[in-house]
Every structure is written in structure tokens, then in C-alpha cells.
């Protein structure tokens, strides 16, 4: 993933969301969250792999996005999830703000090994 890939990637996410009939507000939240996470991955993780899949659980459909990098990892996850905390020069609302936009948010990180963020946005969630 490179900076130029961000916009095409967002478009792929949008295609998946539109295909399952996700509403415009949820689509926008999902794509914004994806954009934040891709940006984090490029800035702190030195790039990585982003995947998109459509999932279903019972009668609910959703989109799952996974962002995996092999960067330095996050030292203190609970600190990183706090509103207003940042190590970079962005606004410091990346992770907690992103979490508010999606249905499910999972952050796994090992120092020195990398970080994986998984998010799910349900069609009606």
C-alpha cells in the first residue's frame, strides 16, 4: 500500500458497501474509518496489507476490513485508544475516532513485530 493507493482502496471499499445495500451514512462512516486506518498504516507502520471482505452473521451482512503492517507496533494500546493522544503530527483522534465510526474494532499489536487492525461495519449497524 502506498499513498496513491488510498483513493482506489477507498473506492473498492465503497463498491463492497454499495453492493450489499449499505446506507449512505454507514458507507461514509466505513470509508472514512478505512481512510484513517490506511493513513495510520502508511505513516506509522511503513505500509502493509489491507483486505476487504463481505461477511454475514445470522441475518446481518457487513464488511470486514483488515489492516496489517510489520511496523514498530504500538507500545501502549490503551494510551493509543485515548482521545487526544498522538505521537504524529495529525489531530490525535485517529484510533478512538475511528472506533466510533464502526460496529466492531479490534486492535492487536506486538512491539517490534507490527500491528493488525480489524474493523467490521454491519449493514444496519
Amino acid at each position: 500500500m502506498k499513498e496513491q493507493d488510498v483513493v482506489p482502496y477507498r473506492n473498492r471499499v465503497k463498491e463492497h458497501a454499495v453492493k450489499m445495500g449499505m446506507g449512505l451514512v454507514n458507507q461514509t462512516k466505513l470509508i472514512t474509518a478505512a481512510s484513517e486506518l490506511v493513513r495510520n498504516m502508511l505513516k506509522y507502520g511503513g505500509g502493509g496489507i489491507a483486505t476487504i471482505e463481505t461477511i454475514s452473521q445470522g441475518r446481518e451482512n457487513g464488511v470486514r476490513l483488515v489492516f496489517a503492517d510489520k511496523g514498530p507496533g504500538i507500545k501502549d494500546i490503551s494510551l493509543a485508544m485515548k482521545d487526544g493522544f498522538t505521537t504524529g503530527r495529525s489531530l490525535g483522534l485517529g484510533l478512538p475516532g475511528t472506533k466510533r465510526l464502526v460496529s466492531e474494532f479490534l486492535l492487536e499489536s506486538t512491539e517490534g513485530k507490527g500491528t493488525t487492525v480489524t474493523i467490521i461495519k454491519w449493514k444496519n449497524g
Binding site: T28, K29, T32, E36, L93, P96, G97, T98, R100, L101
Partner: peptide, 8 residues
Amino acid sequence: ITLIELGL
């Protein structure tokens, strides 16, 4: 809606 939920 998204901007405000994001905290911006």
C-alpha cells in the same frame, strides 16, 4: 455526521 462522530 461522520465528521462529528470522528471528533472533528
